[in-house]
Design a binder for these strands. Sequence first.
DNA 1: TCCAAGTGGTTGCATCATGCAACCGACACT
DNA 2: AGTGTCGGTTGCATGATGCAACCACTTGGA
Lengths: 150, 150
Amino acid sequence: MRRTSLEGADCPIARSLDVIGDWWSLLIIRDAMLGVRRFGEFQKSLGVAKNILTTRLRTLVEHGILDTAPASDGSAYQEYVLTPKGRDLFPVLVALRQWGEEHCFEGGRGSTVLVDVERGRPVRKLELRSEDGRLLSPADTQVKKRGRSG
Amino acid sequence: MRRTSLEGADCPIARSLDVIGDWWSLLIIRDAMLGVRRFGEFQKSLGVAKNILTTRLRTLVEHGILDTAPASDGSAYQEYVLTPKGRDLFPVLVALRQWGEEHCFEGGRGSTVLVDVERGRPVRKLELRSEDGRLLSPADTQVKKRGRSG
DNA sequence: TCCAAGTGGTTGCATCATGCAACCGACACT
DNA sequence: AGTGTCGGTTGCATGATGCAACCACTTGGA
């Protein structure tokens, strides 16, 4: 991946992808959000090679998405926990999940749904709204520069 | 990328990433959503090598995210346009953009914002809500199996 | 009609990231 | 001391990525 070329890009999407845009990182974050904390748990859950997992965890820590902490079970090992920055990726994962559920399975629906724990009912679809509450489609939006003459 | 290992995964996130989880695809889709249609436009905008662009456009078409159409300017060339499936990736891009704006720039804010065209005001942050409208955090949600005993 | 430039690629080759498997030190349990 | 687990590191093979050169077709101009 030739990430370096866009590292300093203005586009926030490019910047985000530069951090979490690889195959494993988002799956690690997904697992972390489900409560996975230990190296071995990630490895078993993802089926990823250990060296790859090592480098991914390291870069996620460097980027401030995960943090290391002493193991909560008292053992001598450490755990990887999401930082607030990492937790803020929740909408990204939900958006990917909803798109995948709708478009990446045969019957048009996946075999799993995201539900609200309190009621056990499926969550709403993510939707973009204007400041005053109108539902926005791509055509209703525009990227605008801040600070400079735009 | 060892995508084949997870191609048949149950997880919709993994399936999504299998389709759009590489560095360039989402940037291509971003540009397409901004109105870019021609091969040369994508190439200039992204700065990507032409062979890479060729393969990415091809796989995006194969996956039903882009479609080819005769050029709208009457020339003999073709254009790449988003399908409905592709347009449904809008929330994914917005989520990535909002996260990037908040976490991937020095001052804590990016140099661009997504605005509502009609009013020119910044859009709301994406938020996940339950069926009855409550705001949901990761801890408030759970992945549930459908169809089978779960 | 011929040449030149633009468009949309393909091909060859180098390099880097990824993946697999083997190895390894620290700790745990007996 | 011996065996097993945890959390890695190292070496090596392979596949994806990137660059640059090349190519076919179209377009435009004289």
